[in-house]
């Protein structure tokens, strides 16, 4: 497996929201397969938008985003659900379905894919025990702590064995211990070859990682360091 192969590439990408709000301005960047990249910057810098362009929640105003050399903006909206199975997403607010148990939340991602019940009953407990929730899989989100909810969310992101995990402020709502646990899991996932894109403004986390850091400010990429420390002003 080539570590050097480009999996995501931004080519002159700009995103302008109505009212001439420029969120991203002429961004050129690529991410290689198997990389662990932290994307940092203040709130509103454009981190989330950058990530949304990858899983086609947003479409560039100009330029093009390529996923495995496939232009994301040109994917038919009908085929979007299939495309998204290549990308696992984790968010600050967990985005779990409140009326489903941990098991059901993860299973849902397989159900929509039309996978057999036997497969689901085998794979879901497996992935939940990987994130350390084997014994709590029949609890509802409100019965779980923030860190546990985020681990359910992570399990769901992993269930399709995606090539890329996108984590948008996954530790934003978590205490330091739970945050560390999530980062540890992300690193573990990355060690198996999955590309991880982590948006955060937690200085401590990024410094400890010692991995590639991309700094965004005002919709532009200001710094891009390999194995560097993130220096917040």
């Amino acid at each position: 497996m080539s570590q050097e192969e480009t999996i995501i590439r931004f080519e002159n990408v700009s995103k302008v929201f109505p009212g001439d709000a420029v969120i991203l301005a002429d961004v050129n960047i690529s991410f290689r397969s198997g990389e662990f990249v932290s994307i940092v910057g203040a709130s509103g810098a454009g981190k989330s938008t950058l990530l949304k362009l990858i899983y086609a929640e947003e479409i560039p105003t100009s330029g093009e985003v390529y996923f495995s050399e496939r232009p994301v903006g040109k994917i038919n909206r009908k085929h979007l659900p299939f495309f998204r199975r290549n990308i696992g997403t984790v968010f600050q607010d967990f985005k779990l379905l409140p009326q489903k148990t941990a098991f059901e939340n993860v299973a849902y991602a397989l159900e929509v894919d039309g996978r057999s019940t036997a497969d689901i009953n085998e794979e879901v407990p497996e992935i939940l025990s990987i994130v350390g929730l084997g014994r709590k899989m029949h609890q509802f989100p409100k019965q779980l702590s923030g860190g546990e909810q985020q681990r359910v969310s992570l399990a769901r992101a992993l269930i399709h064995r995606p090539k890329v995990i996108i984590a948008d402020e996954p530790t934003g709502n978590l205490d330091p211990v739970a945050s560390e646990e999530i980062i540890r899991l992300l690193l573990e996932i990355n060690s198996f070859g999955t590309t991880v894109l982590l948006a955060t403004h937690n200085k401590g986390i990024v410094d400890k990682l010692g991995k590639r850091v991309v700094l965004i400010d005002n919709g532009r990429i200001i710094e891009d360091h390999d194995k560097s420390k993130y220096i917040l002003k």
Binding site: Y55, E57, K78, L80, P81, F82, R84, R85, T89, K95, L96, L97, P98, Y108, A109, V112, D113, R156, H160
Partner: peptide, 15 residues
């Protein structure tokens, strides 16, 4: 709010 989540994890509109 759940519709967005469902679509995000790969559910089609009809699903």
């Amino acid at each position: 709010q759940e519709f967005e989540i469902m679509r995000l994890v790969g559910a089609s509109n009809i699903y």
